[in-house]
Design a binder for these strands. Structure first.
Lengths: 335, 335
DNA sequence: CGCTAAGATGAAACCGCTTACATTCACGCT
DNA sequence: AGCGTGAATGTAAGCGGTTTCATCTTAGCG
């Protein structure tokens, strides 16, 4: 592979000049630039990324850390981030941390070692303090889907509470009053916020909280199924089940069906996230739309704006969920 | 950030020695090693990846090129590859090429510029010749899901023909004789092979080919839906539809349902791929299992074996699809 | 036509590490 | 004690760029 030195020779200039045309910033006479470009083309020259990064201490890489590479949330997220960055000539370095605090810290360390210009983080386990303590020392970072009070500038987040509210309000508006709820893991920000929204809706409609219509799930299909069975067996009848994500809604649907309930004739179901396959289900799943692509794109824009100085980009930090009514929800009418 | 030089000073040795303990290969006296490690810990030293790569011309990075980062095939594939490599202390650099020959070539160029130690490629558009011409000049590479005759060593592939055969045979075995087929894009290797398997099964059972029971799709849900409508309108009755992937099967199911057909009572459906949500559907989708995780892991192993010399790994290059019978297929009995 | 200043180019010092080769060290033997 | 030897360590030359600063052009102007 040709080096900058050979290009310089071929073009009859010094390496400094070649370097200048590579970083097409400095003043190089048009004629000289031509010569150099010609030589570069001739030799099929490609700058050595490592030498560049070593010398310049810049990498044009943005580190992206997520819990998993697969899954209906992360995969589209990565896809959007990568695409947006690539369009801006930047490159994403992706790593997975598997919802483990230590691995998340490792991941951040890894990306830092790689001298990324910035970090886009979807943190699941690391406490907010981690970032509060490091606001200054860490590379520039955006947190996707977390809202840390005094760090708002770094946070892009979905209003999960509002989403939880919208989901439950949707079935309340349809006349349901006996509503079961399957939550995400207790203690997780998203899950708690969605639950809080649920409770707010109940309160607003004057429906008392009933512990027997609550099941603490873990966002898996299995939890949806088990939770439904448990609540069915608890003896308190319900006409709707609100799930904190679509995955659990699938489990709930399946279990209800095997127990002989019609959806939505006997029981309405609503999920959360609006993952791609939600509309593949039968009946098509009503759910809360999580503007995942918008948020992912915005994370990339945040970096382009704040790290690379693209002033044209406007940054939105707070995102609103949206109700998507499909076929698993129906009005409730007294039998 | 501390440099190797400072570590050397702190430990009272030369940088060469520090370098030796970093690459813990060479003979360093145990006591010296201790001193150096202590100094490294003391200074919280992290080697500069770029300086290392520049000097050594090795990166510990494996380039991975796929069509998309999202989707039920690519996301799990990336996830598995990344995980396997990480466990071996290697790192994946991931890039997407969006099914475009030029972008695929760009992607390979990109990964080559980054001086990856090897390439794992899921190529969609680039012709086999590209690789035949470059077998020598390219970085070590594995092709996922393509079988190029004289390049078998580089190819991991699924027996798509056999998969196509199994799918159609499954419904034939159930007594169906009027079988519609929705294929993938004509000209794509996978799609053509699956179709060939379908035809082989038909022939084996003495069922004549009927052009009206064939619809050339494109692997999208919409194609499944449109294809089904088209064939329904063609006037040739059918009792089963075999789809070249699960996505199209969803479309087919939906369309059949809106036209008033029961699944599987009136029409059986079988897909291909066994994507994660296939069992979320109702009825649960019968399909052909694509051993995606096995193949992805094997791609990582190929690299560990052939590039990093891990002799313990055995490499399997050919993978067999497997029939997964669930609830969308039922025996056909004359009305 | 000569002088000046701005603009274009070049020389050389780094960036932080690896590695071939030279040097030193420690130790067993005669 | 002196020597030979292999192992441990040090020296210094890159790896391929960027960037500061000095030097050389060039054009404009009196």
């Amino acid at each position: 592979m040709a080096t900058i030195y050979e290009v310089a020779q071929a073009a009859g200039v010094s390496l400094a000049t070649v370097s200048r045309v590579i970083n097409d910033s400095d003043k190089v006479r048009a004629k000289t630039r031509e010569k150099v470009l010609a030589a570069m083309a001739e030799l099929d020259y490609r700058p050595n990324v490592f030498a560049q990064s070593l010398a310049s201490n810049r990498t044009n890489c943005i580190g992206v850390l997520v819990s998993e590479l697969h899954g209906p949330i992360f995969a589209p997220m990565l896809s959007t981030i990568e695409k947006t960055l690539k369009e801006a000539g930047k490159f994403a370095i992706i790593t997975a941390a598997h919802c483990d605090a230590e691995k998340e810290a490792d991941g951040i360390r890894f990306l830092t070692e790689r001298k990324c210009d910035a970090l886009i983080l979807h943190i699941e386990a690391l406490p907010s303090d981690y970032f509060l303590e490091r606001e200054e020392s860490l590379l520039p970072f955006v947190l996707l889907n977390r809202l840390i009070p005094s760090l708002e500038h770094h946070c892009l987040s979905l209003d999960n509470e509002e989403g939880g509210y919208l989901a439950t309000k949707a079935v309340l508006d349809l006349g349901h009053r006996q509503i079961a709820y399957i939550s995400g893991p207790r203690g997780w920000g998203d899950a708690e916020a969605r639950l809080a929204g649920h409770r707010r809706a109940l309160k607003e409609f004057g429906v008392p909280w009933n512990q027997k219509l609550f099941y603490p799930g873990d966002f898996t299909e299995n939890a949806g199924s088990e939770g439904t069975a448990t609540m069915l067996d608890a003896g308190v009848p319900f006409t709707a089940v609100v799930c904190a994500n679509d995955e659990m809604a699938v489990g709930a649907m399946d279990r209800l069906r095997t127990r002989g309930f019609g959806i939505p004739d006997d029981v309405s179901i609503i999920g959360f996230d609006n993952v791609r396959w939600a509309r593949f289900l039968f009946p098509k799943l009503s759910t809360i739309h999580y503007p995942l692509e918008d948020m992912s794109r915005m994370a990339a824009h945040w970096v382009l704006r704040h790290v690379y100085g693209d002033e044209d980009l406007t940054i939105q930090r707070r995102f609103a969920p949206r109700l998507v009514l499909r076929d698993t929800t129906a009005p409730w009418t007294a039998p």
